[in-house]
Design a protein around this nucleic acid. Structure first.
Length: 493
RNA sequence: GCGGAAAUAGCUCAGUCGGUAGAGCAUCAGUUUCCCAAACUGAAGGCCGCGGGUUCGAAUCCCGUUUUCCGCUCCA
């Protein structure tokens, strides 16, 4: 990371706090690690990003519908999805090599070696001890076994081990008043499962025909081992996911289509294309048959913003198995090869999953500019957020040029009419130039100034954030001028 | 989780040898009425992250802890 980009990132974080975009959670109590709150401008920006996504995905596609599923779900769902077993391994670190191992894996290796060396008795004894420890979830016992059997790190060769810890990325809590094993529920680690378990409900009640999609925006929770880099990795975060259900065999074609469609969505905001790249997963997760990430070049390097995964029929098949409910879809369309309908099958799924918080950060970084406005006479600069007008938290600010002569009253009148349609701010404090700069800092695309001439001919000046140019326009035309620039048509057509 | 660094006003940061905290910007009120950070006057804002210890005395030294950043690690 070069000094200047490092500096830039720090400045964006400071700016985000100073102007009410992002605060650390529970700051007055020293903060809560890797949890953040969105402030008055941040929540507006975040909502606008959500709206852009929702409109692009749901509203613009006749065959995609949205849902809003609960964060709590039946615990068995997480067994079916692989989240319970797949990420609750006992881990141990070697302090010298700084490598992390699965404790049971280390013991298994040792058992194998005992067997090979003909020490069958020892092998059996260790196997028994280990099974007992695992069954009882006795982590301390697992560590004892590693120490007792003098297991050394294959890299460092030392036996300088940490405690054995259970890493489970899911947060759990109890449902019901009495704490009981059976009442454990998890906070969802992804929103996708809420879509899968509702797939039949939506398909039937919405009379959806394949291919169709179900979209959802919502919070997800992961108890990350380490969470850093501001809001890049948070313990509580928000995802915007769409699962697209397709006929088996067509997944590649839809995968390619969504891969392109999603990148276009990003680029429509005006981001330089070289800031984005695809990253192909070479090592695929157990449920996937293809996976690409859309990565953005953050100041600290390219990071995943969105994943497009071909999830096969893994999730639906698993839910069919665990719930004993048929997850199949009857496809009446005629297969040209056989001349018969495609019939019953479990659909394949293409997933697009974007991290809303990362998208938010990306948008802030992209928009942030420290502009040098110095002339020969004086030094001058401004911080401006060049947000797309559709995303800007405040669409326009209305200023009386001065605080008297009836100008504030006139400005209020205009404000009252426009605020029905647009999120506006009114300011009369300080010199006009300062007010302009304050709006630049939060990315407001327009500033409307009411001056003495306004009282005579009902015209105002409108000042553009990006060019700092001003124009004199009729008050009556303001709705259209602002409306045109902040219309979603600019992004969706 | 390991190693390193840091934490002082809303933001960016000073703070000497251990002697009870400052600046710039920002904020608020007033004067001024001006189209790109104007000026002037005034005000508010800090248990120096938190908890211990050493000391007559700690923002400063020591220990612990929390949070943040960097590297490694992790990320079904």
């Amino acid at each position: 990371m070069s000094k200047s980009t490092d500096e830039l990132f720090k400045n964006v974080i400071s700016h985000a706090k100073e102007y009410g975009f992002v605060f650390q959670s529970s700051e007055i109590y020293d903060g809560l690690s890797a949890v953040y709150d969105y402030g008055q401008n941040g929540s507006e920006l975040k909502n606008n990003i959500k709206t852009y996504w929702w409109k692009a995905m749901v509203q613009m596609h006749e065959n995609i519908v949205g849902i809003d599923s609960a964060i709590f779900m039946h615990p068995t769902i997480w067994k079916a999805s692989g989240h319970v077993d797949g990420f609750s391994d006992p881990m141990i670190d070697n302090k010298d090599s700084k490598k992390r191992y699965r404790a049971d894996q280390l013991l298994e290796d040792k058992i194998e070696r005992y067997s090979k060396d003909g020490k069958t008795e020892k092998a059996e004894k260790l196997q028994y001890d280990m099974d007992e420890a695992l069954k009882g979830e006795n982590l301390a016992r697992l560590r004892e076994l590693i120490i007792e059997h003098e297991i050394a790190d294959p890299i460092s060769g030392t036996r300088n081990w940490t405690e054995v810890r259970q890493f489970n990325l899911m947060f759990s809590t109890q449902m019901g008043a009495i704490a009981d094993e059976a009442d454990v529920v998890y906070l969802r680690p992804e929103t996708a499962q809420g879509i899968f378990v509702n797939y039949l409900n939506v398909q039937k009640s919405g009379r959806m025909k394949i291919p169709f999609g179900i979209a959802q925006i919502g919070k997800a929770f992961r108890n990350e081992v380490i969470a850093r880099q501001f809001i890049i990795r948070m313990r509580e975060f928000e995802q915007m996911e769409m699962q697209y259900f397709v006929r088996p065999g067509t997944q590649r074609e839809w995968f390619d289509k969504w891969k392109e469609t999603r990148l276009k969505w990003h680029l429509a905001l005006g981001t330089a294309p070289e800031k984005y790249r695809y990253h192909e997963h070479t090592k695929l997760a157990f449920y996937a048959d293809a996976a690409y990430d859309i990565e953005f070049e953050f100041p600290f390097g390219f990071k995943e913003v969105e994943g497009i995964h071909s999830r096969t029929n893994y999730d639906l098949s698993q839910h069919q198995k665990f719930s004993n409910k048929k997850m199949q879809y009857f496809d009446p369309e005629v297969d040209p090869e056989t001349g018969k309908p495609y019939g019953n099958y479990i659909p394949y799924v293409i997933e697009t999953s974007i991290g809303l918080d990362r998208m938010f950060l990306l948008t802030m970084i992209n928009a942030y500019e420290e502009e040098d406005l110095s002339t020969e006479e004086k030094q001058d600069s401004r911080v401006v957020l060049r947000l797309h007008p559709c995303l800007a938290p405040v669409k326009a600010a209305i200023f009386p040029l001065i605080k008297k002569d009836g100008l504030p009253e006139k400005a209020r009148q205009i404000m009252d009419r426009l605020k029905v349609d647009f999120n506006l701010q009114y300011e009369e404090k300080d010199a006009i130039g300062k007010r302009y700069r304050r709006q630049d800092a939060i990315g407001t695309p327009f500033c409307i100034t009411v001056d003495h001439q306004t009282l005579e001919d009902d015209t105002v000046t409108i000042r553009y954030r990006d060019t700092m140019q001003q124009e004199r326009v009729a008050v009556a035309d303001l709705d259209k001028i602002i409306g045109d620039k902040v219309s979603w048509k600019n992004l969706l057509s």
